[in-house]
Design a protein around this nucleic acid. Structure first.
Lengths: 368, 368
DNA sequence: CGCGCTCATGACAACGTTGTCCAGGCTCTA
DNA sequence: TAGAGCCTGGACAACGTTGTCATGAGCGCG
């Protein structure tokens, strides 16, 4: 590992001292300029014996500089380790070449690919990405979005936690391109990119019905959340299309933490006329339901909204209605940049299709 | 869905026009100030009939303003929709209250929680987080890191893709706090937070040996990657400790894409003396190996490095050496802020322990 | 040979904010 | 009532960069 003696601290971390830095940091920190003596264009100019503006020209690759002068300037830049201060540049130019992404929780496997997709589009436009998690808290969403606006991001991609986004009106008016993803914006006209939650859920439930099920349970998120509402609506529509009256005992809403999902599922599976199939309203619910079903003797069919990793390796494989998270992110980001270059003016609502992936659990026959 | 007629475009997206915005954006965009007529403190001051600095005081909650004046200023702020321009603030103050995170791939489930943990610590320090994926490309890592430095982030958390980070030396000298995570920095003295890859792999392999295995395969990433090297070293150490000579046919290195992992695994399982257990070097390898083993008639034991979701629901459950991605991120971010407040001066190397989670696949007896 | 043209270069202001410093009005006390 | 001290408010410079414009040298051409 390391030849020096390791010390074990209270948390079990092994800490090994490295060589001391040549220059101690704090001293540098408190002395001199705020950026720790960072050279500016002025310094470079002085060293190269040229004017300030000439340095600016070289740094930005503008024409009108003799090769000889350019060489002198470049040498000074390298010698001083100069790096342009983009804060000042932004102040002057007005564009920050950065956009913000406000999502719910970066550690949710659904948002990783979405964020990555946004980043790739941003990168293609020479733009950096700020990231922030709202943790499903409307206040935190607003705080984050406004903090990003204060940083003068050129645009915002928002996965709404709240249902009132009027606070963004002045920003949008001031030119901040804005796209909402996954859930629609509240009380404001704006670009929206969604999955077809209604259609996806309807198809998933219809799939169960097609395999002979009539008593089908639905476990989903709070009705206040748009996606949850749409999926419930899809469930109801599929049932109605098949002429099956839905019983209250089959529906569990606003249930999201594993313990309550577990109880809800177990309840549906009890009694004289238990459900023979369950439609799970999102990936977290699906995972918990799988756990519950694994402990049951009777076979219960399952279709989940959102794909989950390794779903194909379980016994049986988990049938899901999959959204394309990357496509959501990509579409949103592309629309954002089209707003920025002026080619997109009218706010629209885009719905991406979902895909039913059959793997076994949704094709089990009813076991009454 | 929507009562207006949906139009289906070539990609199957359904597009529904929304109401036209009251003010058309592009016109606003090209006319007037660069920020689309954003009010400044000067505007607020004029409207409130006070001095510029007084507005600044109110905005920043500084003392020395009568309640009456403060009210007038606040009214003007609300009326104009003023939002402080942090770019200018940064230029003046020198601290951006933002840090950068350069990681490999945000859509990898290992990095989501890590990123989220960094964000939480940042948030606790009133700091925003830039995110960027290097896609395992050293050049792109450097490009990203330097772009973040040009934005004058206060600090950088880097998950190295390359093995030479001397390009960051001027930045570190200039006061950019820097912490490397998951893999050590190359050719530079810096703070590093790692998992105990060597110890974890050794424990995992020793676990297999303790269950009677002697012919144990190892499938891992390129030897150039630090974590892969350490894990291989752990494998060798465990084997040596048990007095088992390792055969070349048992090791497959530099193999990471599913197809080649599949071939490597199948090869190890062929022949007169096939391996009876496999140690998988990372989460992606583990998943592919699980797929291969699912197709085998003979039972083969498996221990994987990195935990994977739903590992407990498979048959058998997958035994893994788990790293705590969130702890890595949290530790790194905390050290970064300790650098910033000056309480951390000497670069150190911190190693976080791993945890062996037994779920069945690692406890299968050898089937020769 | 001189005129005007091109081109490299630099001086200067401006971007929007905050830190410093000073002015003027108030209160309190001797 | 005068002087000291405090409190509120504002004028001004500075942060590092870029856009505008002026300057002066070099050069071609009549």
């Amino acid at each position: 590992m390391d030849r020096r003696t390791p010390v074990e601290d209270e948390t079990g971390q092994r800490i090994v001292p490295e060589a001391i830095r040549r220059t101690s940091r704090p001293a540098e920190h408190h002395a001199g300029n705020r950026y720790g003596n960072r050279p500016t264009m002025k310094d470079v100019a002085a060293r190269a014996g040229v004017g300030l503006k000439t340095v600016s020209r070289v740094v930005n690759g503008e024409p009108g500089v003799t090769p000889d002068t350019e060489r002198r300037v470049q040498e000074a830049i390298d010698a001083l380790g100069f790096r342009r201060n983009d804060s000042a540049r932004v102040l002057r130019k007005g564009r920050t070449a950065s956009i913000g992404l406000v999502l719910e929780d970066l550690s949710d496997p659904f948002y990783g690919p979405l964020s990555r997709a946004v980043e790739e589009v941003a990168r293609a436009h020479g733009t950096l990405l700020f990231n922030g998690s709202s943790a499903e808290d409307p206040e935190r969403e607003q705080e984050l979005a406004l903090a990003l606006c204060a940083r003068r991001v050129d645009g915002l991609v928002v996965i709404p936690a709240g249902d009132d986004h009027r606070y963004l009106e002045p920003e949008i008016k001031a030119g901040v391109a804005t796209v909402f993803v996954d859930r629609p914006a509240g009380r404001i006209d704006a670009d929206v990119v969604l999955s077809d939650n209604y259609g996806g859920a309807r198809d998933g439930v219809a799939h169960l019905i097609a395999h002979g099920h009539r008593r089908i349970g639905f476990i989903g998120d709070m009705p206040g959340i748009h996606t949850a509402e749409e999926r419930l609506r899809g469930y109801r529509a599929a049932m109605e299309d098949a002429g099956i009256p839905v019983e209250d005992a089959w529906m569990s809403l606003g249930v999201t933490d594993p313990e309550r999902v577990r109880r809800a599922a177990e309840e549906m599976l009890r009694g004289p006329a238990p459900v023979t199939a369950i439609f799970a309203g999102n990936n977290r619910v699906t995972v918990t339901v799988i756990r519950v079903l694994a402990g049951q003797t009777r076979q219960v069919a399952l279709v989940g909204f959102d794909d989950i990793e390794l779903a194909d390796l379980l016994q049986p494989g988990v049938t899901v209605v999959a959204q394309d998270a990357a496509a959501l992110g990509r579409t949103a980001a592309e629309r954002l940049f089209r707003q920025l270059d002026g080619s997109l003016v009218t706010p629209e609502r885009v719905e991406l299709p979902t895909r039913l992936i059959t793997r076994g659990s949704g094709e089990l026959p009813p076991a009454d």
